[in-house]
Write a protein that binds this DNA or RNA. Sequence first.
DNA 1: TTTT
DNA 2: TTTT
Lengths: 141, 141, 141, 141
Amino acid sequence: MSGINKVILVGHLGKDPEVRHLDGGVTVASFPLATSETYNKDGKRVEQTEWHNIVLWRGLAEVASKYLQKGKLVYIEGKLRTRSFEDREKVKKYVTEVVAENFTILGRKSDFEPPVSTENTTPKSESEYTDVTDPSGDLPF
Amino acid sequence: MSGINKVILVGHLGKDPEVRHLDGGVTVASFPLATSETYNKDGKRVEQTEWHNIVLWRGLAEVASKYLQKGKLVYIEGKLRTRSFEDREKVKKYVTEVVAENFTILGRKSDFEPPVSTENTTPKSESEYTDVTDPSGDLPF
Amino acid sequence: MSGINKVILVGHLGKDPEVRHLDGGVTVASFPLATSETYNKDGKRVEQTEWHNIVLWRGLAEVASKYLQKGKLVYIEGKLRTRSFEDREKVKKYVTEVVAENFTILGRKSDFEPPVSTENTTPKSESEYTDVTDPSGDLPF
Amino acid sequence: MSGINKVILVGHLGKDPEVRHLDGGVTVASFPLATSETYNKDGKRVEQTEWHNIVLWRGLAEVASKYLQKGKLVYIEGKLRTRSFEDREKVKKYVTEVVAENFTILGRKSDFEPPVSTENTTPKSESEYTDVTDPSGDLPF
DNA sequence: TTTT
DNA sequence: TTTT
């Protein structure tokens, strides 16, 4: 039946995305995302961090691997999925992940460029600024 | 830092809420919630159901225990929290839960009444509805 | 820059969708949606209803025109858009609309069928549901 | 009936909040918020900005007036409300606003401090970092 | 009227 | 394992 399963997160990547190419050519990317919350306890600031397993598929995984790196601040929209797997001792375990449906980088302009590994990047015009939301669209990369 | 951790679900309760009273008088309620999604696979309808562990605290737990029962359709807003615990064999395990921050019953008026343990309920007209959103407020019950 | 503009509504249609076909063959549908909230004021139940202008484009408009009717309960996800227009007296006016990006009918199975123009519908069991979320997909109708 | 009316925005303030104190001592703050979206049109980047009227009440208004300024990036959660008013020519008009229910500043640390009007701010320790989400809580200011 |  |  008509259910809704929606997750909205804003947080920082704990690691660079890890990309895998499955048989059949499907790309999957994943990374941990931290969402922190601060509140007052007995007059002291307390920060509580929650870690989320983010998984991205296909085109979204490709874009993520290119534009997201450890430390970046992102808005992520997706859905919850709990799956089971067997660990090395053949014990059945469960893990809950957030399957991303789209994401947007938040932050300064420099955060919107892929990291430069070497030399030479020709200066960017103001208008080349990149948005990576909804990569199913017609992104210029 | 200022993160966002938000979950929005619409689904059916898989069981009646289970209520516990902790030391100190705090009430906790929990129940499984199913959100189903249907899609087409090779021309056939496929339904995929995702189960979520819902946890409610204090006043929200009290209201849930009174107004929610197995099978009811609810809108739930909350946040993700993953916690660890030891199972009977002292193995550390993780479970991800949705800590509800508010909920609203969706459906017909009859769904908004606590179940009647005895006889006699006069028939209700389809069109009358009641709301139980934001139970931290001043609900008339 | 990377902004987020998201609206989530659950409410009842105030009218049947009004469908228009623009030059070029694009379909647009629109309808008013009521979201009601009840709260306590001085010990009395007060219900406050908010009306939203919902607009749907293309395939989503087609599905809406077929499956949504006055009175139905729907979940709608979309974005805000304020546009200006001139009224009959050539006065510039503004209206804010919710441009739907997807929707899901909530309710019983009978609510998931297009209205029957003639007689006879055999009673449906309560437990059967159908989903029309994400109509951009491969709905079987 | 049980409706949901929820808006989620991430965008930049177009102006400093404008604060008013109503009779009875209630504080109201308001400001325009821009959410921008970029997409490809015929191979060119196009940016489309949507402007939202944000309104905040009571404690939330106080916190907003202190911590939000023109240009800052914020996450805002609230609900839609359309109200009517008479303009100077006694013409009835409508405006749709987003009544904020909570907000969170996104951005760098410097964005989390109220602007310094004069001299002297003693250095802040790392832990004095401020979150302004859910100001109904126990904020340290 | 914002930001990238 | 992130960020402020």
